[in-house]
Design a protein around this nucleic acid. Structure first.
Lengths: 131, 131
DNA sequence: GACACAAATGTTATGATATTACACATCCTT
DNA sequence: AAGGATGTGTAATATCATAACATTTGTGTC
């Protein structure tokens, strides 16, 4: 699948895939210093490409990145994220009704959407129980 | 309405209300240096309070802030933002169907939502025409 | 293979956004 | 007046992101 990634891209991808929760660019950098990475730009450039390929998502409300949960079928649908503020885990889902409603709004307002962000912060099932 | 704001809060509120587009905390600070503000924290603290009061919204995908478009009826409904990347203008809207769908997802997944962000970046009617 | 172009890399420096820690002041209630 | 909650001022620092430049690697074409 992710066959033709470059070295840096593959390193960043592997780090994100193995992570339990979203990672900041600088955290990724720290985890890859052993592999020879030294500068933030090396990570940011890889992230830019991976995001473009749909393999990685940026979480705007966190300034952090996650590996896409559906790495094979990287449809560029509208994706929503549920982010647990306790354990950090992120769940990714799509909803066609939400998509249709937002599309309806933009169409009726002459707004041409480029990228849509939906992020729900809160506590996941496991963590909400404890609280 | 916004009667009992403190001096710094009122200054920040006035700056945001008078702005055409979202402002970063540092931009607000720069505009208020003449009024005696000197440190980022003075602005961030005011923003925190104003956000809490529902008078100001934070746009996560921009790291910037806008005055609420409905300053009187500050219902804490789910609000979506359409942000023009050209002219910077932001439109604010609500959609009960979207709200219901997201509520449905969280409920069925045992997720307890605290704050939801919906931001559509793109070009507004005016700017999309020119392109 | 040699050439040319696009893409990726490495490095340094800098810009932009946000918070911690601490001391002091103000307001409100009792 | 005492005490607590909230707001303020300031310095230092943490965190996130990009600009600018030189170089290298990969790819297609002849």
């Amino acid at each position: 699948m992710s066959a033709d990634l470059t070295r840096n891209q593959a390193l960043v991808m592997k780090t994100l895939s193995g992570a339990e929760a979203p990672l900041s660019a600088y955290t990724i950098l720290d985890r890859l210093r052993g592999d020879g990475l030294r500068a933030p730009l090396q990570v940011y450039r890889a992230l830019e490409k991976l995001t473009e390929l749909g393999l990685v998502h940026r979480l705007e409300s966190l300034n952090a990145f996650v590996a896409c949960a559906h790495p094979n079928c990287h449809e560029q649908e509208l994706i929503a994220f549920a982010i647990c503020e306790d354990c950090g885990k992120v769940e990714e889902f799509s909803d066609d009704v939400v998509k249709d409603r937002l599309d309806g709004w933009t169409r009726s307002h002459g707004f041409r959407p480029a990228k849509t962000t939906i992020e729900i912060r809160g506590n996941c099932g496991g963590c909400a129980g404890k609280a």
